[in-house]
Computed example of a mutant assay.
Amino acid sequence: MEEPILLGKDKFKIGEGETAKRELRVVKVDENVIQVQEEVHGIIALVGASSSVNIKKEELKNLIKVAKEEFGWTDICE
C-alpha cells in the first residue's frame, strides 16, 4: 500500500485544558478503491462495530483534487 497523503489537520479543545490533534489522510488501496483515514490523538476512544470519518469542506475539496491528480480518477465531479 502507498504512503497516505495528508488532506488536513487541526487541533480542538475537548475539555478544560485538554486538546486533541486530528489528521485526515487518504491512500489508494486499489484502482477503484481509496481509504480515508482519520487519526485523533489526545482522547480515549471506544471501539465499536462501526466507524465514521469527519471531513471538512476544504478537506473534501483536497480529497477530490488528490483523487484526480494523484490517483487518476478523472471521471469524478467537483
Rank of each mutant, 00 (worst) to 15 (best):
I5L: 12
E23L: 09
C77M: 13
L7C: 04
A20T: 08
A20H: 05
P4H: 06
A20Q: 06
G48P: 01
T74D: 14
E58S: 08
K28S: 04
E70M: 10
S50P: 00
K13S: 09
K9L: 08
S50C: 05
E78Q: 14
L6I: 08
F12Q: 06
E18Q: 15
L60G: 02
P4V: 04
E70N: 14
Q37R: 14
N32P: 00
E31S: 09
V36D: 04
G15C: 08
L60A: 05
E59Q: 09
R22H: 12
V27T: 11
K68N: 07
L63T: 02
T74V: 13
I64C: 03
G48Q: 08
R22G: 05
K61C: 00
I43W: 00
V40W: 00
S51D: 08
D10R: 15
E2I: 05
E23A: 15
K57M: 03
T19I: 15
Q37M: 13
E38P: 02
S51T: 12
K28N: 06
I5V: 15
V36Y: 02
L63P: 03
G48I: 06
E31R: 10
V27H: 03
R22E: 07
L63D: 01
E31H: 07
I43L: 13
K68G: 04
I64L: 10
E31D: 14
I44P: 05
I34P: 01
K68D: 05
E58D: 12
M1S: 10
E38T: 04
K56Q: 10
K61A: 06
S51N: 09
L6K: 12
P4T: 07
F71A: 04
I44Q: 13
A49I: 08
K9D: 11
E78K: 13
L6P: 03
S51K: 10
M1Q: 07
G72P: 03
T19Y: 14
K56G: 06
G42K: 01
K9G: 07
C77I: 14
E69F: 06
N54D: 07
V26D: 01
Q35M: 13
E2H: 05
I76F: 07
E18I: 12
K56E: 10
E39K: 14
E38H: 07
V36Q: 03
I64T: 09
E18H: 12
K61D: 08
V33A: 08
G72F: 09
E39T: 13
E3F: 04
E59H: 05
I5G: 01
A20S: 13
A45S: 14
D10Y: 14
E59K: 02
E31I: 01
I55C: 04
S51P: 00
T74S: 15
D30L: 08
L46M: 09
V36L: 15
L63E: 01
G8Q: 03
N62K: 12
E16V: 04
N54Y: 08
T74R: 14
I44G: 13
R25L: 15
I14E: 06
A45C: 08
V27L: 14
G48K: 09
F71W: 08
K61G: 00
G42Q: 05
I5S: 01
E2T: 07
E58H: 11
V66H: 03
E16C: 00
I44R: 13
K11L: 10
E2W: 00
G15W: 11
E70A: 15
K65C: 02
L24S: 03
L63H: 01
L7T: 03
N54V: 07
G8S: 07
K57L: 06
A49F: 11
L46H: 09
W73S: 02
G42P: 06
V26M: 05
E18D: 09
